[in-house]
Simulated scan of single mutants.
Amino acid sequence: MDMFNDATTMIRDYIVDHGDEWEKIITNPEFTKNFEVKGTKLKNAPKTYDPEHS
């Protein structure tokens, strides 16, 4: 696995384990004035992730 895939996996794992913290970050006014998160989930779950996880 290359460095990009390793980093992506680490980020996904952290978000899965800290969903409340992720929601707090992406709804924070300091974040939303510079960034916009579109959508609520991926079309397809990445391999090894539960497609029913919310």
Results as ranks from 00 to 15, higher is better:
residue 23 E to D: 13
residue 2 D to W: 01
residue 35 F to G: 00
residue 46 P to H: 00
residue 43 K to L: 09
residue 25 I to Y: 00
residue 1 M to T: 12
residue 46 P to A: 04
residue 32 T to G: 05
residue 5 N to L: 11
residue 6 D to I: 13
residue 42 L to C: 10
residue 16 V to H: 13
residue 30 E to T: 08
residue 33 K to Y: 01
residue 34 N to H: 11
residue 43 K to Y: 07
residue 19 G to M: 10
residue 15 I to N: 03
residue 27 T to P: 02
residue 7 A to C: 14
residue 30 E to D: 11
residue 49 Y to E: 04
residue 27 T to D: 02
residue 41 K to A: 14
residue 9 T to D: 07
residue 38 K to S: 11
residue 16 V to W: 13
residue 9 T to W: 03
residue 41 K to G: 13
residue 44 N to D: 14
residue 16 V to M: 12
residue 4 F to N: 14
residue 1 M to S: 12
residue 49 Y to F: 10
residue 31 F to K: 01
residue 45 A to N: 07
residue 20 D to C: 04
residue 27 T to I: 01
residue 38 K to P: 07
residue 5 N to A: 12
residue 41 K to V: 03
residue 17 D to T: 07
residue 44 N to F: 11
residue 40 T to Q: 08
residue 5 N to R: 13
residue 42 L to T: 12
residue 17 D to A: 14
residue 25 I to S: 00
residue 34 N to Q: 08
residue 45 A to Y: 03
residue 13 D to H: 14
residue 40 T to I: 03
residue 45 A to R: 06
residue 48 T to Q: 10
residue 12 R to S: 09
residue 2 D to Y: 02
residue 35 F to W: 05
residue 21 E to W: 01
residue 34 N to K: 06
residue 11 I to F: 11
residue 28 N to M: 01
residue 47 K to T: 10
residue 46 P to Y: 02
residue 26 I to V: 15
residue 34 N to D: 04
residue 2 D to N: 11
residue 29 P to V: 01
residue 2 D to S: 09
residue 6 D to Y: 12
residue 11 I to P: 08
residue 33 K to N: 05
residue 32 T to L: 03
residue 26 I to A: 06
residue 41 K to L: 04
residue 35 F to M: 02
residue 15 I to A: 03
residue 31 F to Q: 01
residue 9 T to N: 12
residue 48 T to N: 15
residue 30 E to V: 08
residue 45 A to Q: 05
residue 7 A to H: 15
residue 48 T to L: 09
residue 38 K to D: 09
residue 36 E to S: 10
residue 12 R to W: 06
residue 44 N to R: 15
residue 6 D to G: 11
residue 3 M to F: 07
residue 21 E to V: 02
residue 21 E to C: 00
residue 26 I to L: 05
residue 3 M to K: 13
residue 18 H to V: 02
residue 10 M to G: 11
residue 41 K to Y: 09
residue 10 M to D: 12
residue 40 T to L: 02
residue 43 K to D: 12
residue 32 T to S: 07
residue 14 Y to T: 05
residue 15 I to G: 04
residue 6 D to S: 14
residue 23 E to G: 04
residue 46 P to D: 01
residue 18 H to I: 00
residue 5 N to D: 10
residue 30 E to C: 06
residue 45 A to C: 14
residue 41 K to W: 07
residue 5 N to C: 12
residue 11 I to W: 11
residue 12 R to T: 08
residue 7 A to T: 15
residue 47 K to I: 09
residue 31 F to Y: 08
residue 15 I to Y: 02
residue 49 Y to K: 10
residue 3 M to C: 09
residue 11 I to Q: 13
residue 18 H to R: 04
residue 35 F to N: 00
residue 20 D to I: 02
residue 44 N to G: 09
residue 47 K to C: 07
residue 49 Y to V: 06
residue 44 N to S: 14
residue 49 Y to G: 06
